[in-house]
């Protein structure tokens, strides 16, 4: 059973004097139990909109979404019992201490309150977090730590985390990665949005890439990085001319590195390339797998990957 299942999920916002702004377009997605699913996209791509739809904070214009087998709207309460959520922009009750916040959230959530508080302390210790201060006194990084504690303290089967490591230092990011792997090893599921490609590459099993509210691809991270294309460096004994690769199937972005060396992108099988250079003396032929960032850019053209200052689709719609 898919832990998250969406079908034709669409969200459009009415903008005064303009056509509706479509923040999410016909999303079909399935996230399986026990995986870490990365959700990548630039600012305003629709990542936060998707997450807010999954949590029933906003309602879809069309389509359906199920989380843990529950319809996110009709069975919202049952669904939310099984989810831990960390918003991208975490705002909490400024006058409460972290300990009071944990206590409040545990009581509102219900169930075994002492167990939740005990687990919150354990997570806090791992993240080196001090529960004694008031929320308004914490740095962004410390607020993120508290957000993680609140999302994880009831050991939910599904974690939905929006930009979870923003503001965490590298050491804590390492701890976070370890915690996510533990969650996965326990058979629980993590759905995280991130603009940190290295993070996604390091911990995610699969990744969905979204742009302008449209899911461009859902792939296994290893398949995404190994299969789509390669960077090739070709060194010849004679003078290298880019024209020798004209019309070769799968070859693109040819550039002259130096007088004897060409660099280019090769998509698909290698045979057409090998046939095309069979008349030349090949000194060196190297292939390199693209980084996830390069793959990311192939989906987005020249757009920059997401910055640390997220703009939600809703905010975009309001502009």
């Amino acid at each position: 059973m898919a832990v998250i299942q969406t079908h034709d999920l669409t969200k459009a916002y009415n903008v005064r004097g303009k056509p509706p702004f479509v923040a999410l377009q016909s999303l079909d997605m399935a996230v399986e139990q026990g995986e870490i699913f990365g959700y990548l996209g630039p600012n305003g791509a629709g990542k936060t909109t998707t997450i807010r739809l999954l949590l029933d904070l906003i309602r879809p214009t069309a389509g359906t979404a199920q989380v843990m087998g529950y319809d996110v709207n009709a069975d919202s309460l049952e669904m939310r019992r099984l989810v831990g959520f960390l918003p991208g922009e975490l705002n909490l009750w400024r006058n409460l201490t972290a300990a009071q916040t944990v206590d409040y959230v545990a009581h509102v959530r219900g169930g075994d309150v002492p167990a939740q508080k005990r687990h919150a302390r354990e997570i806090g210790e791992r993240l080196n977090f001090d529960f004694s201060k008031r929320i308004r006194e914490y740095s962004t990084g410390n607020k993120r730590k508290l957000g993680l504690v609140l999302a994880m303290m009831h050991k939910p089967p599904l974690l939905i985390l929006d930009e979870p490591t923003t503001g965490l230092d590298p050491l804590l990011q390492h701890t976070f990665n370890a915690m996510m792997r533990e969650v996965r090893d326990e058979g629980r599921t993590v759905f995280l949005s991130s603009h940190m490609l290295a993070e996604v590459q390091a911990i995610c099993d699969r990744v969905g890439i979204i742009r302008d509210g449209d899911m461009k691809a859902i792939e296994r991270v290893d398949a995404l990085t190994e299969a789509k294309f390669h960077w090739v460096t070709l060194q010849l004994r004679e003078q290298a001319e880019p024209q020798i690769l004209d019309g070769v199937a799968g070859v693109s972005d040819v550039s002259l590195h130096n007088s004897h060396t060409l660099r280019f992108r090769l998509t698909g099988e290698h045979d057409p390339l090998l046939r095309a250079i069979s008349d030349y003396y090949v000194v060196r032929l190297e292939t390199r797998e693209p980084s996830l960032e390069e793959i990311f850019l192939t989906y987005y053209g020249n757009d920059e990957p997401e910055s640390a200052d997220p703009v939600t689709a809703e905010q975009k719609a309001r502009r």
Partner: peptide, 14 residues
């Protein structure tokens, strides 16, 4: 307005 409601309504409370 402060965005706190997102956290509260992600909990199992209608």
């Amino acid at each position: 307005d402060a965005g706190v409601l997102d956290v509260l309504l992600s909990l199992p409370v209608s």
